[in-house]
Design a protein around this nucleic acid. Structure first.
Length: 241
DNA sequence: CAATCAACCTGGGTGC
DNA sequence: TGCACCCAGGTTGATT
């Protein structure tokens, strides 16, 4: 990749997030687009030394003396220099941002989804942008909805609860500086704290904080999945309401 | 057509 | 200790 040689002389005019994409707008109407995937890390703290397994992929020297460095442990993260049209194409494939949605908007999105389970549905970036695997499990737990439920069968109350839960778990992640289960770092090289606040994800076998039955760990659509089979019943009917 | 799977990469952990 | 295998917060295109 020779992005570094293409960039000198250009100016950063704006920085935005689009779903899970980070979009840096340049003054020539091009865009530096990052997708961190699982292990991508962007660091602006010049004195930060990442662990040895974080391979350096990219550096950009800014005129205030900052160096923007990009590391990726697995080399599957993306950095691309794109035109406005190409960014527009990415944007057009993304669903709405969860924080911009109301319950009335979210219910039809959920119930018209063609995916087999609600977990697949909220992970689908074309339906709702920005929800990843950890936050999907946390939100479904919080809303007391089984990840295995068929999306079309959620009633208005359930979809409203789910949207609110998605917003809450994402806000928690933001407030606590990210979830550092593996090795997430913010731009200063500091780990996030949100892993301390997870109540479901990664808790397989441990007692549910609500009912004390063990949290189930399984796999749904190839993604590690955790839920409480008691608090999040698969059947919509519950004798105990 | 819908749903799953392999591939993209690499390093770390685990179990034999 | 060595080695084969599995796993990872994601997305995409191929395959069943």
């Amino acid at each position: 990749m020779d992005l570094e040689s293409l960039l000198p002389g250009r100016r950063i005019t704006e920085i935005n997030r689009l779903g899970k994409y980070l979009i840096i707008t340049l003054n020539d109407n091009n865009y530096l687009v990052f997708h961190l995937k699982i292990y991508g890390r962007l660091i602006t703290n010049n004195s930060f030394s990442p662990p040895a397994d974080h391979t350096h992929r990219f550096s950009l020297s800014l005129d205030d003396g900052t160096t923007l460095r990009f590391f990726d442990k697995s080399n599957i993260a993306d950095i691309r220099l794109l035109s406005e049209d190409e960014v527009q194409e990415i944007s057009s494939k993304l669903g709405p941002e969860p924080f911009s949605l109301g319950a009335d908007d979210f219910h039809p999105i959920v119930t018209s989804a063609k995916l087999p389970r609600i977990k697949d549905t909220i992970l689908d970036q074309s339906l709702i942008a920005g929800v990843g695997n950890i936050y999907a499990d946390e939100a479904l737990f919080k809303a007391k909805i089984s990840p295995l439920r068929k999306p079309a069968e959620l009633n208005t109350q359930e979809s409203a609860d789910l949207l609110r839960s998605i917003q809450e778990v994402l806000q928690s992640g933001i407030d606590h500086g990210g979830t550092s289960i593996e090795s997430y770092y913010d731009t200063q090289g500091a780990p996030g704290q949100n892993q301390k606040y997870l109540v479901c994800y990664g808790q397989g076998g441990k007692p549910c904080p609500v009912c004390k039955n063990p949290i189930v760990q399984t796999e749904i659509a190839g993604r590690r999945t955790h839920y409480c089979a008691t608090c999040q019943p698969e059947s919509q009917l519950s004798l105990f309401g």
